[in-house]
Simulated assay, not measured.
Amino acid sequence: MNDFLLIFRRDAGFDAQLTPEQMQAITKPWQDWMGGLAAQNKLANSGARLAIDGKIVKPGNVITNGPYVEVKEAVGGFIIIRAASLEEAAELSKNCPILSTGGNVEVRQIVPMQ
């Protein structure tokens, strides 16, 4: 088995537009999907949601605010799953709830450091 990072992207500021009731309604499908991955022993790390604001560190010790407001799509969170191949990891991602709200999932194999 290999580990794969699933990176969840959607429109920047999507969460800020939701009411508490809407946020609660979209949480249940995430719990169900991730619970299903865990039941299959495919969930290696439960990941996390990411805050809207952040900092960008650039060469020369330059630190700026980010992500930038003109960016349409932002990383909203991630998890790590276990799968036999990139194809299997992508198949497991097809039921991700972010897809039903206009987002997407980037699937990347984690290569251990030698």
Rank of each mutant, 00 (worst) to 15 (best):
S85R: 01
Q109S: 08
T19R: 10
V69P: 05
V111T: 13
A83S: 00
N65D: 08
Q17R: 15
I63Y: 09
M34K: 08
Q109L: 12
A83V: 02
D32A: 02
K72A: 07
I81V: 08
L18R: 09
I80W: 04
A16F: 14
N2Q: 13
A38H: 06
V57K: 13
G35K: 01
P112N: 11
L5C: 09
N2T: 11
S46C: 13
I52G: 07
L6N: 06
W33P: 00
L5M: 12
E87K: 01
E106S: 09
P67I: 11
N2Y: 14
V111Q: 11
V62K: 05
S46N: 15
K58I: 05
K28S: 02
P29R: 00
I79S: 00
R82D: 01
S85Y: 01
I110Y: 12
N65P: 03
V107S: 10
V75S: 01
A83K: 00
N45R: 11
R82I: 04
S93Q: 01
V105I: 02
G103S: 10
P112F: 07
T64R: 05
G103I: 09
A48H: 12
A48F: 14
I110P: 13
K72H: 02
R108K: 11
S93N: 05
A16E: 15
S46T: 14
L37A: 04
K42T: 07
D32V: 03
G13F: 15
G103D: 08
K55F: 02
K72T: 11
Q31L: 02
K55P: 12
Q24N: 06
E106N: 11
